[in-house]
């Protein structure tokens, strides 16, 4: 009889775990599809309205579906302005903090500073909103004369949103920098490089894809952020690229309108889904652009 048994033995545990992992993966895909489906379905109702055309949707500069004004750009502009300010603040500051934490800080300094940074990430955004409205805006008023700066304004909301995503960008970038192999740093130091030259010219480029991911997540957070802009940026659509003006972002508008009495199947109701779909598209496009940029500049070290 043949002693060598090479037949596959039943491994029930393995199969079970495999099934669970598969289910978990499927679930997140399913939820994503469900969301897109629901958004698309309701948004279709909006676009099927005889009065709504894509031309109006993209070319009008006012948004008030109740009276036939469908210019989404009045909401998109505020989202772009606040997000741009946020990323302009968070990217350099986050990157500098990350370089400091990963390359310069002593182990002890890092063990104190990183948790503090992460506390920033745990503050509820509504608190950030009132911080923007009641603390940052009054300070900004000192720098602008008269009514140049409105009480609700995109600048203050954008700045505070930048502070909100700073820990995220700093923390993710720090992980990316720390993941760069030590041998690269040693190679640079052995060439007579200073710490700054090593950090900025060798380690930073090598970590670029991770930093790019941090920026993408940061942008998505900024574009999707609701409470800060709802509280501090303004409560009315306004097509303006002037950060000193009050304006309402896509998210802020959805939050405000859906909070009131809203009956189903009115144009106001379905328009919210059109905004949400637009928001989805904006985030998608920004992600694609950032990915392009990262791929262009990344340096592989694998």
């Amino acid at each position: 009889m043949n002693q060598l048994d090479l037949r596959k033995k039943p491994r029930p545990g393995e199969a079970l775990v495999q099934a669970l992992l598969f289910l978990a993966g499927i679930l997140s895909i399913f939820v994503t599809i469900a969301i897109v489906y629901e958004l698309g379905k309701e948004a279709m109702l909006f676009f099927n309205d005889p009065d709504v055309t894509f031309a109006k949707f993209f070319s009008m500069t006012r948004w008030q579906p109740g009276i036939g004004q469908y210019g989404i750009i009045a909401l998109v502009s505020a989202t772009l302005v606040t997000s741009a300010i946020a990323i302009l603040i968070a990217l350099p500051l986050g990157l500098f903090s990350a370089i400091f934490l990963s390359e310069y800080a002593s182990l002890r300094a890092r063990s104190v500073l990183k948790p503090i940074l992460e506390i920033l990430a745990g503050i509820p955004t509504v608190v950030y909103g009132y911080f923007a409205l009641l603390f940052v805006t009054p300070i900004l008023k000192l720098f602008f004369s008269g009514d140049q700066l409105q009480s609700y304004n995109m600048l203050s909301a954008g700045l505070v949103m930048g502070i909100m995503i700073l820990p995220l960008i700093a923390s993710m970038s720090e992980d990316a920098l720390s993941a760069v192999p030590r041998s690269l740093r040693e190679g640079a130091y052995a060439m007579g490089a200073t710490k700054l030259e090593t950090s900025v010219q060798i380690v930073l480029p090598a970590a670029l894809s991770g930093i790019g991911a941090a920026v993408i997540v940061g942008i998505s957070r900024a574009v999707g952020e609701t409470m800060i802009v709802a509280v501090a940026a303004g409560a009315g659509p306004n097509f303006s690229f002037n950060p000193l003006d009050a304006a309402e972002t896509m998210t802020g508008h959805i939050a405000r309108i859906s909070g009131g009495d809203l009956s189903y199947n009115t144009i106001d109701y379905t328009s919210l889904f059109a905004i949400a779909l637009m928001l989805f598209l904006v985030t998608l496009v920004l992600n694609l652009i950032s990915q392009r940029v990262v791929n262009r500049f990344r340096e592989r070290y694998e």
Partner: peptide, 20 residues
Amino acid sequence: PVEVRRRIGMVFQKPNPFPK
């Protein structure tokens, strides 16, 4: 030490070219 390393170069056990 930066000046020292400029005069005393080093080649490591595992090749570690820069990602450039």
